[in-house]
Amino acid sequence: MSRPDAILDIRDLTAGYNAVPVIRGISLCVGKGEAVALLGANGAGKSTLLRAVSGLLRATEGAVLLSGETITNLAPEKLVRKGLSHVAEGRRIFRRLSVADNLELGLARMGLSSAETARRFEEQYALFPILHEKRKDPAGALSGGQQQMLAIAQALIRRPTVLMLDEPSTGLAPILIEEVFDKMAQIRAQGVSILLVEQVVERALEFVDHAYLIQGGRLIADGPATELKDSSAIRKAYMGDVSIA
């Protein structure tokens, strides 16, 4: 399944907790500037896959390549410097620190000049004006949508080549979900490849080029988003056999 133009190339990845595999032999590819969705019901193993790619969880089998370089089981703190950013689920920002401090931590250990740092801040403030407005507030005081923006900005400030987003819309009101997708479209327009895990299936399929479906830790289907949209495979992945019966 690997393609020559793949930026992120996941091959036969198996990983889990306490030696119990949650995902088994999953392969997927994200091309340059491409947006790819990873879909499946709760507990299918989507977050586990992202955690295994970013090194938070040890992969027991398989390989992950980033721009052709093997990064399997590389520690997450090393991986971020290679251009892969992972926005974990649940708006994992540092609530007790200010918005600006959170962004600064996004650049931790990047070794940038202060001029470059200032430029990176400007970039993010331009993309998310609300963060500029609230830059001195503790991140915990932001609204849910703003926290999600901050989590994304924190990952983007490193200018990653690949951005992995784990359910950025969870718990947000529809209007805010739309805003998140708008921002993701802007990010993608800058040439960042996106691997998106989403619950909002229809909206996600409108956004991405390609989607993969997993069920019970295995890949069950994949294809261009436009094709998958009308297939019964998606409904089956989420609703089992019930809704088709």
């Binding site: 619950q199 229809e202 909206r203 998606i234 609703m239």
Partner: peptide, 17 residues
Amino acid sequence: ADVFRNEQVIAAYMGGA
């Protein structure tokens, strides 16, 4: 049977706005 055939439920389950 009722619930899983409810389009609204399917939409919510699959996150449809």
